[in-house]
Amino acid sequence: MGKTPDLTVVQKMTTDTLHKEGKTQKVIAKEAGCSQSSVSKHINPFTRLIERRREGKDVVENKCTSNRDNRTLERIVKQNPFKNVVEIHKEWTAAGVSASRTTTHRRMQDMGFSCCIPCVKPLLNNRRRQKRLAWAKDKKDWTAAEWSKVMFSDESKFCISFGNQVPRVWRKRGEAQNPRCLRSSIKFPQSVMVWGAMSSAGVGPLCFLRSKVNAAVYQDVLEHFMLPAADQLYRDADFIFQQDLAPAHSAKATSTWFKDHGIPVLNWPANSPDLNPIENLRGILKRKMRYARPNNAEELKATIRATWALITPEQCHRLIDSMSRRIAAVIQAKGAPTKY
């Protein structure tokens, strides 16, 4: 197809005048002595561009599968999103759709599906979701000042090997076996269990647990680490202590300990780490330790202590301020796990 010739100055003036008078493009072309396509191009220079885009869109949409076929595919994927492309393609073709495996994958991408590592969240049955939802509704009007009175706590496990968090290595050809470029493999990596607490004012002292945490061990932690943390973070001000529902935490002897010491405990829904900002603080801690290479448990403890000391009150304050957003997310999800 040849290129549409440009109009002369006189033809452009004639076209503009007749167009303002409401003449059709056919009449304008005859009066101006040019082709109708030249008139159309001059009147609306974007017409052809839009037409080309529409033509291209029509070509793209002219696919070998119908909208009904695509809806069937989307339903198959949503019914079991953990199936691989081969399994999904097999089920799709069994439904009477004629398409290749590549087409199946392409249609899934067109729908917005992408293959990702699934997020790991605690299992929540309907009863637990309802309790989370009720808890969130009860706390939705709490202010930032009220949340600042809460001391959040948690036990966390740290290993010498940090799995997939270990970064990639930059090396040259022939340096694959260079000790400087090797990542050590540990069959049974040493680990330590750590108890810690935080508030909007910062973090308290860490406690490295030497044995399995039962009620007696936990009360010892409360006596020698939680109380000093409260003195450090709240001084003489009142505070509320937060803990999850681990057996050692909810034991009758532990409840008695809190009553004897006059410390109120925040009621807490089960399996709700997304509501505890100290979980995010643990993530920050592990990211900061990503490049550390401790060789034994003692070096690991030293690394944890040094990294914990780098946590600023500002970081803690920002995490505590997120409580209102966490609660809103739980209410929106009707008690289901959230992104936090």
Rank of each mutant, 00 (worst) to 15 (best):
L281M: 08
A215V: 12
S191Q: 11
Q315E: 14
D260Y: 03
R235T: 14
G202H: 04
K286S: 04
L266N: 07
V221E: 09
A237E: 13
L227F: 12
I240H: 04
V203Q: 05
K212R: 15
S200P: 02
A302K: 11
A237W: 08
L233I: 00
A248V: 00
K212G: 15
L300A: 03
Y234F: 14
E299G: 00
R235I: 11
H317N: 15
E279H: 12
Y291S: 15
S211E: 12
L209K: 08
S200G: 09
Q242D: 05
R235S: 14
E299Q: 09
H249A: 05
T256F: 09
K301D: 09
V265G: 01
I304G: 00
A253M: 11
V217I: 12
A237G: 09
P269Y: 01
A297K: 12
V203T: 15
M289F: 03
S191R: 07
A306P: 06
L285Y: 09
S255L: 11
I311K: 02
A302P: 08
V194R: 01
E223K: 12
Y234C: 06
Q219V: 10
D220F: 04
H224Q: 07
L233V: 01
L285A: 09
L300K: 03
I240N: 06
Q242E: 07
T312S: 03
H224M: 04
A270S: 08
R287Y: 13
D274A: 09
N271Y: 14
F225N: 14
W195F: 12
T303D: 10
I284H: 14
I304L: 00
Y291R: 15
